[in-house]
């Protein structure tokens, strides 16, 4: 890895000030992706601004019908949180499937969302639960956030502070893991809330996306039988040595059904 100037931020304001003052900075959350990227010399920032000391970026609370998870909260904290397990058990389950125990002890929800890896687990939950992403500047709706492979609505230097998940009536997540990396080849998150039914898929395309046809089919209730025979188009889906676009399209239907007990 190329060397860089390491800086620690004491607050959100301090982090963004340090970011702006540097010529080409990156924020460091848990580092579970950023450090791997730097080791491969795929990126060469002048400065790394570590958020580890920003205490008000950590924590989970229930606020006005939503579960609010602050950006630096680790996957393990979400997976083992009593309030998440009670209010959105599918979200706690999803967090418990990310990486391995050591990665879950370090990796954060904010880091995962800002990175928008095509195979990341959290984006499917953010989209299906119609979450709102709060940054130091504004709020961004889930539908506007994910824009492509490793591309989000975040501007340079904009920092995610928390994510607000409306508590659904019912929700489920299922994924087909890559046998080696355990990343989802396809993951499906299905939720029924006050905005209706939302079905979101991760792993299959350049970034997480919704399936309107599936949502319509489930509008009357989360009955897996309603999805039988529904096809998903393979057009634009990812193809790699692990799975073709056609196979991923097939898995979308299977995972969506399994997410709701089918």
């Amino acid at each position: 890895m190329y060397d860089f100037t390491y800086q620690r931020a004491s607050s959100v304001a301090d982090a963004t000030t340090k970011y702006k003052a540097a010529s080409d900075a990156r924020f460091l959350a848990g580092g579970m992706t950023l450090l791997a990227v730097l080791k491969q010399r795929l990126d060469q920032p002048s400065d790394v601004v570590d958020l580890a000391d920003v205490k008000d970026l950590v924590g989970i609370a229930e606020e006005g019908g939503a579960i609010v998870i602050r950006a630096m909260t680790t996957h393990n904290t979400v997976a083992t949180s009593d309030i998440v397990k009670k209010r959105i058990p599918a979200l706690a389950e999803l967090a418990g499937t990310i990486g391995d125990p050591m990665v879950r002890n370090r990796g954060t929800i904010g880091g995962s969302l800002a990175n928008s890896d095509p195979a990341a687990s959290y984006p499917s939950a953010v989209l299906a639960l119609n979450a709102t992403i709060h940054t130091d500047k504004r709020t961004i709706k889930a539908d506007d956030f994910f824009q492509g492979m490793f591309t989000t609505a975040l501007e340079a230097g904009e920092l995610i502070t928390k994510v607000s998940f409306p508590i659904p009536e019912q929700a489920g997540y299922e994924y087909f893991p890559n046998p080696a990396s355990r990343y989802p080849i396809v993951g499906a998150f299905v939720a029924k809330g006050k905005d209706g039914v939302r079905v979101a898929i991760t792993g299959a395309g350049p970034c997480a996306f919704r399936l309107p046809e599936y949502e319509k089919a489930l509008a009357g209730g989360l009955d897996p039988k309603k999805l039988e025979g529904l096809k998903a188009s393979a057009e634009g889906l990812n193809t790699d040595i692990h799975a073709s676009a056609e196979y991923r399209a097939h898995l979308i239907n299977v995972m969506a059904r399994r997410a709701i007990g089918g």
Partner: peptide, 10 residues
């Protein structure tokens, strides 16, 4: 945690 993916200064 995996010490190959943590910075010492962290």
């Amino acid at each position: 945690m995996k010490s190959c993916t943590l910075l010492a200064l962290h």
